[in-house]
Amino acid sequence: MGDFTINSYDKHFSLKDFNPDDTNGLLKGNVKAEYEKLQEKFSELQDVFYAAKKYRLLIILQGMDCSGKDSTIKKALSGANPIGFNVENFKVPNQTELDHDYLWRIHNKTPRKGEITAFNRSYYEDVLVPRVHNTIDDNIIFSRFREINEFEKYLVNNNTIVLKFFLHISKEFQWEKLKNRLESPEKNWKFSVADLKERKFWDRYQECYSDVISNCSTKEAPWYIIPANHRWFRDYIILKTIVKAMEDLNLEYPPLDGNIEEFMKELNESK
Rank of each mutant, 00 (worst) to 15 (best):
M1F: 13
D3I: 10
I6H: 09
S8N: 13
Y9N: 04
Y9Q: 08
K11H: 14
K11C: 11
H12F: 15
S14E: 07
L15A: 04
L15D: 05
K16L: 11
F18M: 06
F18K: 13
T23R: 06
G25T: 04
K28L: 07
G29M: 09
N30M: 08
K32F: 02
E34S: 11
E34H: 12
Y35H: 01
E36A: 12
K37A: 13
E40H: 13
E40Y: 09
E40D: 11
E44C: 05
L45F: 08
Q46Y: 06
F49N: 00
K53F: 01
Y55T: 01
R56Y: 03
L57G: 05
L58E: 02
I59G: 03
I59N: 00
L61R: 00
M64A: 10
D65S: 05
G68A: 05
G68M: 01
T72I: 10
A76H: 00
A76K: 02
A76Y: 00
G79R: 09
A80Q: 07
N86W: 10
F90K: 04
V92W: 08
P93M: 01
N94M: 06
E97V: 02
E97C: 03
L98N: 08
L98F: 01
D99W: 00
D101H: 14
D101K: 03
Y102Q: 06
R105H: 03
I106A: 03
I106N: 02
H107Q: 10
N108K: 15
T110D: 03
R112W: 14
K113G: 06
K113V: 04
Y123N: 07
Y124F: 09
Y124V: 02
E125R: 06
P130M: 04
P130L: 03
V132S: 03
H133W: 10
T135G: 09
I140G: 01
S143R: 12
F145V: 00
R146W: 07
R146N: 12
E147A: 12
E150D: 15
E152M: 08
T160Y: 11
V162Q: 09
L163F: 02
L163E: 08
F165I: 06
F165D: 08
S170K: 04
K171E: 15
E172H: 07
W175M: 12
W175C: 10
E176I: 11
L178K: 00
K179N: 09
N180A: 14
N180L: 11
K190R: 08
A194N: 14
L196T: 05
K200I: 02
W202L: 01
Q206I: 14
Y209G: 10
S210G: 06
V212H: 05
N215Q: 14
N215G: 02
N215S: 14
N215C: 12
N215A: 13
K219E: 15
K219V: 10
K219L: 13
I226K: 01
A228H: 07
N229Y: 12
N229T: 04
R234G: 07
R234E: 11
D235P: 08
Y236M: 05
Y236W: 06
I237F: 10
L239F: 10
V243W: 08
A245H: 07
M246H: 04
N250L: 07
N250C: 08
N250Q: 15
L251M: 06
Y253K: 09
P254N: 08
P254M: 07
P255T: 12
P255E: 15
P255H: 09
D257I: 10
D257W: 04
N259A: 02
E262A: 11
F263S: 11
M264E: 14
M264W: 08
M264Q: 12
E266I: 12
L267Q: 14
L267P: 08
N268Y: 11
